[in-house]
Simulated scan of single mutants.
Amino acid sequence: MANTKRWLIQPDTPPTPLQLAMMLLSLLSVILVLVITFGRIEGETRRLLFFIDTCICMVFMSNFFYELFKANKKTEYLKHHWIDFVASVPAIEALRMARLFQILRVVRLIRTTRSLIVPMLKQRRQATVASLLVALVTILTFASVLVLIVESGVEGANIDTAESAIWWALVTISTVGYGDYYPVTTAGHIIGGVVIVCGVSFFGVISGYMASVFVAPDEAEKLDSHAEEIRCELNNSLMRMEANQQKLLAEIDELKQTIEEQLEDKIDDKLERKLENRLKPDK
C-alpha cells in the first residue's frame, strides 16, 4: 500500500503532453479489456481487440524504457513507475487493469493543475507527436472494430477476419486504398468515408509537422543571428555610455576643482581685506 501511495504522489511539474497521451491510451486500453472480459463478442472481434490492446501494450513498454533511459535517477523512477511496467505486460488481463492507477494519477494531476494550455504551448512538438499517436491508435481501433462488426457474416463481404479489418483500416487511413479489402454494406461505406476524411486530416497534420521540423532550424538560426546583432548593439551602446560617463565624470571633477579654486581665491581675498583693514591705523 505504501508503494502505491508513493506512486500516486503529486509531482511538482505539470503533466507533459506525452503523459496525457499515455493516460488517454490507458483509458482506451481499459475499455478494450473490459469489452474483451465482459462483452459478448464473436471470436474474430475478440481477436481484433486483443491484437489492438497488445499493440497499445508495446507503446506503453516503449514509453516506459524511453522515460527510464531519460531519468537521471533510475532507481527513483523505477520506485514511482514500476506499475507502468506491470500494466504494459500483454496477454495478462489482471495486470492490464493496473492501468487504472495511471489514469487516476494523471486525472489527479490535471485537477490540481491550474492550466494545461501553457505547458502544451511550451512543448508544441511533443504535443503534436502525442496527439498524432492518440489519434492514430483511436482511429485504427474504432475503424477496424466497427467495420468488422458490420461486415462480418454479410454475403459477399471480404472483411471477415481480424487481420483483414486492421489491414483495411490501415490502408484506408493512409488514403492508399489497395482495393484488396473493401466494405460491401452501406454502414461499411459510411465508416470508410469517415476514415478517409480522418486520414486526409491526419496526414495533413503530419505534413505540417514535418515542414515545421525542417523549417524550424532555419528560423532558429535567424533568431540567433538577430539576437547576436542585438547583443552587439547593446554592447556598443554600453561602451558608448561608459565612455560618456567617464567623460562626464572628468568634466565634473574639473568643474569641482575650478569651483574649489575660485572659492579658495575668494576666501583668500576676504582674508587679505580683513587683514588690511585691521592693519590700517585708526584715524
Results as ranks from 00 to 15, higher is better:
A2Q: 09
T4H: 06
L8Y: 07
P11L: 14
P11I: 14
Q19V: 02
M22G: 02
L28R: 04
V35L: 10
T37I: 05
F38Y: 04
I41A: 01
F50V: 05
D53S: 12
M61P: 00
F64I: 04
E67T: 00
K70V: 11
N72H: 13
N72V: 10
L78W: 06
W82L: 07
D84H: 07
V86F: 15
S88G: 02
A98V: 05
I103V: 15
L104Y: 15
R105Q: 08
S115V: 00
K122N: 14
Q126N: 13
A130I: 03
L132P: 01
T138I: 04
V145F: 04
V145G: 03
V154F: 02
V154S: 01
G156Q: 12
A157L: 03
D160S: 08
E163M: 08
V171A: 07
S174F: 15
G177A: 03
T186K: 03
I190L: 05
I190F: 12
V194L: 15
V200N: 04
F202N: 01
V205C: 06
Y209W: 15
Y209K: 01
A211H: 13
A211D: 10
S212N: 10
F214Y: 03
D218K: 08
E229M: 09
N236K: 08
S237F: 09
R240V: 10
L255S: 04
K256S: 15
E261V: 04
D268E: 12
R273W: 14
E276G: 09
K283E: 12
